[in-house]
């Protein structure tokens, strides 16, 4: 007799179910790649050590982009570092998330009129969570991480999908700002 309670799931539903299970693991074990570009990076040591202890959330620092889930952009980004940031971001394995620190990643902050610093990080790579402030409090940083977990739970942390979908737009912005993302000169041959 066919059970009425358990109607067979379609493939999409099964995929969704698996994805939800995966999301549970992903949000409880976020490994960070810290791209310490600016002054906000100083907020990370207290967040990691005994004062706030981010390890209790399952977060930890990782050595390379291949292993990491979250890219932390801590502060202003000069054009030179933006190249490297994009390169590192593209090396990360999916799903991947970005957290932007401080007002510099939102609107340029105190460097908003500099010729060498970009103003809006979201123009070049997709940011999932911003942590505002110049510089943000450690509590704010921890809050940002918890927000990211909530976003993953509610499937709203989809920056990497946006990057794939609107890739042409992002690439155009990158090229407009940088000329070319990859540099080829005598120092890199």
């Amino acid at each position: 007799m066919k059970s009425t309670k358990f109607s067979p799931m379609t493939n999409e539903q099964i995929d969704r179910k698996w994805w939800e299970i995966g999301d549970f693991f992903r949000r409880n074990s976020l490994w960070m790649l810290m791209y310490c570009t600016g002054c906000c990076a100083i907020e990370l040591p207290p967040a990691m050590t005994s004062a706030y202890d981010m390890e209790r959330l399952g977060m930890g620092p990782m050595a390379t982009p291949r292993q990491a889930d979250v890219l932390l952009v801590t502060g202003y980004l000069s054009l030179k570092t933006l190249r490297r940031l994009i390169y590192s971001y593209e090396q990360m394995s999916e799903p991947k998330y970005i957290v932007g620190f401080g007002s510099c990643t939102i609107n340029g902050g105190i460097y908003h009129d500099s010729h060498a610093v970009i103003n809006q990080l979201d123009q070049y790579i997709p940011v999932d969570v911003y942590v505002a402030g110049c510089m943000p409090n450690t509590e704010a940083v921890m809050n940002g991480f918890i927000d990211l977990m909530e976003l993953i739970k509610s499937k709203k942390a989809d920056g990497w999908k946006r990057y794939e979908k609107n890739n042409a737009w992002y690439k155009k912005n990158q090229l407009d700002a940088l000329g070319s993302v990859e540099v080829k000169d005598e120092f890199h041959q």
Partner: peptide, 13 residues
Amino acid sequence: FLDIFKLLSKRAI
């Protein structure tokens, strides 16, 4: 366990 299962759920290169 969470770390390992998370890694297994990701798309690798």
